[in-house]
């Protein structure tokens, strides 16, 4: 059985473990042939920021992993228009291509999914 799974990424990449954990969960979902979409809202937008340098915080920079998503057929990646604007981010600042949705459209996106995983 295939379910429509939405992975919601809400947090900045290194302050908590959630962003890194989400990458594993997305890849496992893909391995189980689920219909996967990703959504980045709030500080989750910072996960996709180009030119991350984590040397001074002694963490692994896992942002290159996002570029591997298309190899796992993870191609539906959405970001919040309002969250982008609030953080001064443009599409060109992001490491991968995304579809920008207004928060009212995000409500519809959530409605049409069977399962929501929140990270």
């Amino acid at each position: 059985m295939i379910k429509k799974c939405l992975y919601v990424n809400r947090r900045a990449p290194y302050g908590t473990s959630y962003a890194l954990e989400a990458i594993d969960a997305v890849l496992i979902g893909s391995a189980f042939d689920q219909d996967i979409s990703l959504l980045f809202i709030d500080d989750g937008l910072f996960q996709l920021k180009k030119d991350q340098d984590t040397a001074d915080v002694e963490m692994k920079n896992f942002s290159p992993a996002y570029r591997a998503y298309d190899m796992y057929d993870v191609e539906k990646i959405y970001v919040s228009k309002e969250a982008m604007a609030a953080r001064g981010l443009k599409k060109r600042d992001l490491i991968i291509d995304v579809e920008v949705l207004s928060d009212s459209k995000i409500k519809d996106l959530m409605d049409e999914h069977d399962v929501i995983f929140s990270f």
């Binding site: 059985m1 799974c5 969960a25 496992i28 979902g29 391995a31 189980f32 689920q34």
Partner: peptide, 12 residues
């Protein structure tokens, strides 16, 4: 066990 158990669970 692994994360696959979560995915398999939500499918059911």
């Amino acid at each position: 066990s692994g994360l696959g158990q979560l995915i398999e669970g939500v499918v059911m």
